[in-house]
Structure formats: structure tokens, C-alpha cells
Design a protein around this nucleic acid. Sequence first.
DNA 1: GCCGATTTGTCCGTATGTATC
DNA 2: CGATACATACGGACAAATCGG
Lengths: 256, 256
Amino acid sequence: MLNHSAIPWAREGCGIGMRSIYYDIYESLRERIEGGEFSYQGFIPSEAKLVEEYQCSHNTLRKALSVLRLHGYVHPIQGKGVKVIWQRDMHARFVLGDIETFREACERNNISACTTVRSFAQIVADVHVAARTGFEVGDRLYRVERIRHMNGLALIYDINYFLVSAVPGLTPTIVEDSVYLYVEGTLGMRISTSKRTVKVEHVTNDDRTALDLLDYSMVAVVISKTFNSDGVHFETTFSRHRPDFFTFHDTAVRGY
Amino acid sequence: MLNHSAIPWAREGCGIGMRSIYYDIYESLRERIEGGEFSYQGFIPSEAKLVEEYQCSHNTLRKALSVLRLHGYVHPIQGKGVKVIWQRDMHARFVLGDIETFREACERNNISACTTVRSFAQIVADVHVAARTGFEVGDRLYRVERIRHMNGLALIYDINYFLVSAVPGLTPTIVEDSVYLYVEGTLGMRISTSKRTVKVEHVTNDDRTALDLLDYSMVAVVISKTFNSDGVHFETTFSRHRPDFFTFHDTAVRGY
DNA sequence: GCCGATTTGTCCGTATGTATC
DNA sequence: CGATACATACGGACAAATCGG
């Protein structure tokens, strides 16, 4: 079964899964919606019925519903019911945000993907780096450049900065595989919040040499600042995408 | 006082405000964080203390905290406390997403802003329009083109599609002022969920004539599908931004 | 290493308000 | 008006994580 989430740490097999009643109910209802049991613009059963069905409390079910709402699956209407507003997205070539990661999208489309490490170094943040990354001047950082390939095309150019004190023992080999597997698996670190910013920038000389850019003169840039379970900002990543392979999804909900 | 939210319907003066205890507490804590009472990486008072202070229940306070968390203000750590992870963003010229709208950003920077209507028409969705907007073939739609100016520069080119049955009586005059004021004020419609997609596209001939593009060859495009309080998809908007005046913010939280 | 105090996380049951039909 | 359904709020209970003695 698929886990539709672009947030790296939300993938299956990473870290400890969300074992809680409300999350299980959320996943169950999500699958029932995606499976077509409840159709677009239709209503799911009432809270009372679902409480009976899942044998849980009112509050627990409401928590599950609130997560469904935040992810854009349903829309509750006071006095009427909870309406389904999710539709399958037909023609998204490459989706970031709520949907899936680079690797997941590749797997789903049966596209061969691989990652190569362009550079790996330990640095100390100077004024310039600190301003760009949000770290403090003097912080020791790993600086990693990686290139994501799809079907032999270099399409994403990632520049990561990791706080050494939070992610000790990082190596080029680990980085070529999966940093999150190392961070959550070996180090046992939990990751929680990610603040992301999307911009559009002119291509740099590095972009030109790193990516298969055709004649594109600009790239989509996702700047992601990630916090671990201690609330420490331990990573900043600049993800530079060729425009035609870039899509970013987001759901905004009133009152949340 | 400022309401920092880019989601149009979350602005002050639109519709009925969020009058609830948990939301008042959320706003209070947000202001205390932004005001510097609690500093970055510091802890806010414990749940028990805040329950005492705000004279509310455990659960109500937790709801306020969950909203703070979803907005990227705090990070709770089990057994320790709730850590502040919000920092003031220094050098964002123009921010979309969680922060503010075009109009708000202009007001904040003391920049004169205005909107001009480029075209206004009623159409019936054909196969092409339906596929692009998510409406059904045959739906009657208002199609509106507007240009947002800052300091005399045409920087954003908005193409809106409104469902006529949901937003009857729309006129060019209303559209030049504020659609949301009309929709929420006059029609009394509540707006709830907005699904947004960010892409980067080549400039079109329309972009060239509508915007002051300098030598940019691409634009940032925000495609926004908005649902009203009945869960009906009533608007799709394509917002085409000059790249250097475009920033999109987002906060992703594990378990939500 | 253990224990107890503190703090957050989850869950339950209940009551009341508000909107829809 | 009453029945239904979602929204908010309260209070209590226990689990899990952290920290200090």
C-alpha cells in the first residue's frame, strides 16, 4: 500500500510508525476515500456511526477527522455531515508537498532513480552561510551536494547543510543511500517539523554543470528547514529543480 | 494589529471571525511569541500553568497548542516542555502561503498597490477549461483576468474562474475591489479549504502584455482551488508571479 | 539504575451550542 | 418544533518521556 506523503520522515519504514487509535482511524478512512468507497462530493458516515464502527470515543474520531481535513480529504459541514473533497490527481508528473517524494514518485511510475554525491565536506558557518541557512555563525556543518537522476536525467540538485552535533558520523556512503534512514534508524533521532519556502531563481553555473537543464534559465528552489524531536534546527536543504519536473502541493484550512 | 495570513479568507474583516476560546488562546500565545516574550529555542510555560493562566481546560489549551504547532510556532517535547521554533523572517520581499496576501505585504511595506481588471466574461466550461480548472464540462463560470500592481509595476497576473451558481451577480466593479469581501460579506458565504499547487512555467504572450516582466522568461504559478462552506469547489485561480517577487511558505508537521 | 515529580500525549465520557433539515 | 450532525468545552484517567535526586 502506498503512503502518499512527500515529507521524507513520514514515509513507511522510517522511524517509529504512528501507532495511535486516531491515526489508525485516519489511515483507514483515507484508504476508504482513496479506494472509492466514499465518492467525491459524497458524505462519509456521521460521527456517531463511525464512533460505533471504530469503537472509539467522540474526541478520538474527531481528531482523525481533523487530520483528514488538514490533508484536504474532507470538509465537515455543521448540521449536514462530512463531505469528501478529495479527487485523484490524474496528470501530475512529479509532485512534492503533500503527495510524495522524489523516490516514491519514481517508484510509482516505474522510473529508475538514483542519487549521486557531488561533494561532501565539513565546514564552519560564516556570516554568509549562517544568513542563508538559519544556523549560527561558528556552527560546524556538513555540506553535501547531491544530484537526483530520473531515467538518466539529472533533474534535482540538492544542497544540504546538516548540524554536525546533531548528525554525527555522516559519511559520503550514507549520504548516497539515505540520510533519513541513518538519522532515524541508526541515530534514533525523530524528526518533526519542516518549514519550507518555494522560490524561483536564475540558474547558476553549478546548476548548469550539475543538471540536465536543456535551455531553461531558471530553477524552482525549495528551501527546507527541518527540526528534530528536540526542537533543534538540524538541517537546511536547498532543492533546485528543473521547472518542468516540479510541482508543489499544499492544503490550507480555515481555523487551523 | 496585523493578521499574518496569506490565505485570503483568513484576513480580518472578512466573514465572521474565529470566536472561540482555543482560537483566542492561540492568538494570544502567537502574539506573545512574536512579541518576544518567549524567545527562539526557549520554552513557553507548561500546560498546567497556561491552563491556570487562561482559566480553561486541559483539552482546550492543547487545541490552541496544536494550531500553534501547525503554524510552525512551537514544538512540543514530551516530558520537557513546549519549545519556541519561530523566528522573525528578516529579508522576505514578498511572501505567500502562511504569511500574508499581496495587499497585506504592500501595506506592511508602505507600497502602493492596486488592482486592474483586464477582462471579465461569463463562459461555459469546455473540455479544455474543465481539465485545467477541475470544474465539470458545461459549468457556467465567470472568467476574470486581473493585474496586481506594486509601485506602478505589474507583478502578478491573476486568472480566476468562479462558479456562477455559487457566486451570482459578480460584476467588474466588485472584482476590481475585492471578491472575497463580496463573497463573504454580501453573499454571506463562508470559505474553508484551499488546495494549492505551485509550478514554474514559461511566459506566455498574455504574460508579456500583462506584466512588467523585464527579461524573465518564466513565471511562478500558483493554482488555487477553493471550497466554500458547503464543500463545493467554487473557484480556481491561476496566479502568475514575476519570479523575483514570489515566495511561498509552508509548514509540515509530523502526525498531522 | 531506580524512583518520583514534572510535562506532554492519548483517550474517554459528558454536556452544551449551533446549524441543517 | 424536534431530530440529526458537527463544534466547542470541560474534567478525569493513564501512558510515555524527561530529569533530578
